[in-house]
């Protein structure tokens, strides 16, 4: 009798757990909605020669060139869209125009914007590599930085900067004057509008602000007037990480295509994930490894006007190019 009861209870428990897991899977693990991309080519290896990298981090695109922050070499390298080396600029140091650790980049018009993690400032260059000016300095006051690592530039010239150790996103005018911030300076939070070491920021076609909330394993979206809009990444986007579709294990960079698709590098899952701007999961690309189309800690991402994607494959010291099927 007791054994029968035990079997009954165990059976019911198993059924309940199975149902709960199934419901959780259906609710929190979406399936692919679109065909993905195909690997085209890659270039780069470890070193300090032309076309080599030592910890590449960020990437940005002009109409016909690719700019890569070669962080540990303290320089920016420039390639054409096929990966042919063109030039490099920047020198190690903290003097104006010198670089410590250049991070996730942005291009607006004829200017390159470089967040410098070591020197706590944004450095601005022409696309030919001529230094223009720096914005910001070390600190936690408005307009100051503690390891800036991502940047986006609005049409009116405003700068949106992720401020890693200050755990906030700042909006500055083109001349560097403080406009506003999201997140509480230096404080970690998992609720809407709070951050846990943000890593990058991108602007959508409609002016919405997409933030890679790195160690909260999620993406947060704000309207152009600064209001929180929505978030996604794992159950309820509350810092729950995992390997499933739509979940992250550290979002390390983000970009938005012309048609509004959001692409994010999923660092510890060694893949790229694509979403609609409302957070609907579309597809993922890659997986761990050193082969073509595989990643070892993907870091920077940039989407070209025609939809081609360029990804910084940090651990393999190379750049990968992917195109739509």
């Amino acid at each position: 009798m007791k054994i029968k009861t035990l079997i009954k209870v165990t059976g019911r428990l198993t059924a309940i757990i199975t149902l709960a897991l199934l419901a959780g899977w259906i609710a929190f693990v979406p399936s692919a909605k679109e065909a993905g991309y195909s690997f085209v080519t890659s270039w780069g290896s470890k070193g300090d020669g032309d076309g080599q990298f030592n910890d590449p981090v960020g990437i940005a695109l002009s109409d016909d060139e690719i700019f890569v922050s070669d962080a540990r070499n303290s320089r920016i390298q420039v390639f054409d869209y096929d990966g042919n080396y063109r030039r490099s600029f920047g020198a190690k140091g903290d003097a104006p125009g010198h670089l410590g650790r250049p991070m996730n980049l942005a291009i607006s018009g004829d200017k390159l914007y470089v967040p410098d993690y070591f020197n706590d400032r944004i450095e601005i260059f022409t696309l030919t590599g001529k230094y223009i000016k720096s914005i910001g300095r070390a600190g936690k006051e408005p307009g100051e930085f503690n390891a800036p690592d991502g940047i986006a530039v609005a049409k009116n010239g405003d700068l949106f900067v992720t401020d890693f150790y200050n755990k906030r996103l700042q909006q500055l005018g083109a001349d560097g004057h403080f406009i506003r911030q999201w997140g509480t300076t230096g404080e970690t939070g998992i609720l809407a509008g709070q951050f846990n070491y943000p890593t990058d920021v991108a602007l959508g076609p409609n002016g919405k602000i997409f933030v890679a909330d790195g160690y909260n394993d999620r993406i947060q979206v704000f309207t152009s007037d600064g209001q929180f809009s929505h978030k996604w990444g794992g159950p309820f986007a509350l810092n729950i990480s995992g390997p499933f579709n739509g979940w992250f294990r550290t979002v390390s960079s983000i970009d938005v295509s012309n048609d509004g698709k959001v692409f994010a590098t999923d660092f510890y899952n060694h893949r790229i994930q694509a979403f609609r701007s409302d957070g609907t999961f579309l597809f993922s690309m890659g997986g761990p490894g050193k082969g073509g189309g595989q990643f070892t800690y993907p870091l920077g991402i940039a989407v070209a006007k025609d939809g081609t994607i360029f990804i910084v494959d940090y651990g393999n010291n190379r750049i990968q190019k992917w195109q739509q099927h």
Partner: peptide, 15 residues
């Protein structure tokens, strides 16, 4: 210590 954000952060402070 795994991501560049961490290693760069440590190297920055130790430096």
């Amino acid at each position: 210590l795994a991501c560049p954000f961490c290693t760069f952060g440590i190297e920055k402070q130790l430096g």
